[in-house]
């Protein structure tokens, strides 16, 4: 049975979180165990997609006021307010054939681990192309993927609890006059583990369920490991990019 490495890096700032994901992807070799990582955000943060305009998406003075990091991801997709959630990332070599070369199919495969993890918690979820997971028709998880150096990185969120009002105190909407309606729509379209089950979950309980989800989806053993010293060194260097104005304000 294939062995995957599990990284539990706890709650870190947004720049470090993004740097670790990139460092693991860039440093990965075909002979290395694929990596599953679970993490949270401290302080809470907004991440924006690679192609988004920072000024278009984020109320920057408000983010500063609330002490939220704002960081541009190396992956596409939309702006995310990271607060009460479990974030996952997965890295493997394209040559490992664990996921398809076809991007749509590979999203489904990796998101399948989260769907199976939710099943562990008694929540019936399904994959909704391109990059979402839904429960009772509402989004509970969103993911984004990139490929560099022959490796695949997919990271995504799983909402433990969601405050749409707080989210939109930081995120901008395309039409300010329509904000009330947009916020109402998002409330209808988004859900969280707690909303679905009426239960409170600890980060670690959810992480354990997701670990099992990856084991089932990939028929693998997911075993706790740690970052290598090379990965730590690389992540420290890459963090400088994510914390830089040049990177975050490039669009």
């Amino acid at each position: 049975m294939t062995e995957f490495r599990l990284l539990e890096t706890g709650f870190l700032d947004g720049f470090t979180n993004m740097a670790i994901d990139e460092a693991v992807m860039l440093g990965h070799k075909l002979e290395d165990a694929p990596t599953v990582r679970f993490y949270g955000w401290k302080p809470h943060a907004v991440s924006i997609g690679y192609f988004q305009g920072i000024g278009e998406e984020v109320d920057l003075p408000r983010a500063k006021e609330l002490g939220a990091d704002v960081v541009r991801r190396i992956t596409g997709g939309g702006a995310v307010f990271h607060e009460r959630e479990l974030t996952y990332s997965f890295v493997c070599s394209e040559a490992s054939k664990l996921v398809s070369k076809n991007i749509m199919e590979s999203y489904e495969k990796i998101c399948g681990a989260i769907v199976k993890g939710l099943d562990e918690l008694g929540v019936e979820a399904s994959f909704a192309p391109l990059n979402d997971i839904i429960v009772s028709g509402r989004k509970i998880s969103g993911s984004a993927q990139t490929r560099r150096n022959g490796n695949v990185l997919q990271h995504g969120t799983l909402l433990l609890e969601v405050s749409v009002d707080k989210m939109f105190s930081l995120l901008k909407v395309p039409n300010e006059k329509m904000k009330g309606k947009i916020v109402q729509d998002v409330k209808q379209r988004v859900t969280s583990l707690e909303q679905e089950t009426g239960r409170e979950y600890s980060f670690l309980d959810v992480a354990e369920a997701m670990r099992k989800g990856f084991e089932k989806a990939f028929d693998a053993k997911v075993i706790l490991g740690e970052l290598s010293s090379e990965e730590k060194k690389l992540a420290k260097k890459i963090r400088e990019k994510f914390a830089s104005r040049e990177w975050n304000f490039r669009r």
Binding site: G49, Y50, F51, Q52, G53, G76, A144, Q145, R147
Partner: peptide, 15 residues
Amino acid sequence: IRVMGDFFMHPEAGI
């Protein structure tokens, strides 16, 4: 021109 949004493009530098 700047083409922005929550779409995906592989490779990203293609934009």
